[in-house]
Design a protein around this nucleic acid. Structure first.
Lengths: 180, 180
DNA sequence: ACAAAAATACCGACCGGTTGGTGCAGTAAA
DNA sequence: TTTACTGCACCAACCGGTCGGTATTTTTGT
């Protein structure tokens, strides 16, 4: 029953994501997740032996998804930096609702659970720095883009949708100019 | 006993800050805070009638402190943007430990508690945009600086201390060049 | 000036509810 | 027979918050 098991597995993660998004980061409880996933609590524990394991899987899932979208975008972009900026410009808000609270839940629960995210960011940064002669400037552009994400994460964005689009566009443009 | 009351009040907030920093955002409980503050739970509740009130006060305290440091820096800087960047470069890491988890605690508990932070950011942004002809570029610099803070916040920084200093220096320099 | 009264600051046992997690008997499918 | 669960009772720990009571300070009446 490997297939059904995998299915249930991803159902649970999706449920965890949606609980985080709808009820808030502090409300991701095993009971709530099990209920939304349509699984008994015992079933949940069968798949993820602890809450920590569940949240860790949640974070990993998010990371895999981001990675997937980025590599997809890289086919039509000329550098990693522009690919990242474009991906973020297009997909951020659609994922934001889910991602935000999930990350927050992880951070609140046990900060160490964000370690994979850190590693991922580090990898991306190194790749970008290697591609550009002006690594410092490339890094600044990447940072500005990250700040926009963090704004979504904590719902702290002071920008209107228009302002935000302008910023994203500007970032991509400057990134393109940076290429030699 | 107004003075002693105020003292206890700030002791409690300090305790809440240190609990958040040392134990993590998810461990800010009334019992833990009371214990660190050297106050009974009843005493804590006397000062802050609910956990929400406590965390709200915590956030406000942080905001006031940041505001104070910034206005202090503004005396020796020629623009709000450079003042902000300088302040962040010098003080971020020393506050980071406390601030980080406090903000996270607020976010996880009830996202609405971050509303004052949002307003504060908005005000700063508007002031900066009004001061610069190239508002877009000024905003990008501000954003990059914010990303560095968020890195501290979630302990996600991929930079070494040296890299980080270089980035901060670069930001200030570009901000100075932006002034006309 | 001084005691009675009132307001303030604080204690800590206690309560109802929640949480993460266990244990186990049973079952349907592979 | 193994895998993948269900369903439910149960648990210890913990959580936010209440409540009755107490010590101390301030206000007030005389």
């Amino acid at each position: 029953m490997n297939k059904k098991s995998q299915l249930t597995n991803s159902q649970i993660i999706q449920a965890a994501l949606s609980v985080a998004a709808e009820k808030g980061a502090g409300k991701v409880t095993l009971d709530a997740v099990a209920k939304v996933a349509g699984v008994s609590k015992g079933g949940l524990i069968y798949h993820f032996p602890s809450k920590e394991a569940l949240i860790s899987a949640m974070v990993q899932h998010l990371l895999d998804e981001a990675e997937c979208q980025r590599t997809q975008q890289e086919r039509t972009e000329s550098s990693t930096l522009t690919a990242v900026l474009q991906t973020r410009a297009h997909f951020t808000r659609q994922i934001a609702g889910n991602t935000a609270m999930a990350i927050l839940a992880a951070a609140a629960e046990q900060p160490a659970l964000l370690q994979p995210v850190k590693q991922h960011n580090k990898d991306v940064l190194q790749q970008i720095q290697a591609e550009h002669g002006n690594a410092l400037q490339a890094t600044l552009l990447l940072l500005a883009s990250e700040a926009l994400i963090y704004h979504d994460l904590l719902n702290l964005s002071p920008f209107t949708a228009a302002e935000r689009s302008a910023l994203e566009q500007q970032l991509v443009q400057q990134a393109r100019e940076l290429q030699v």
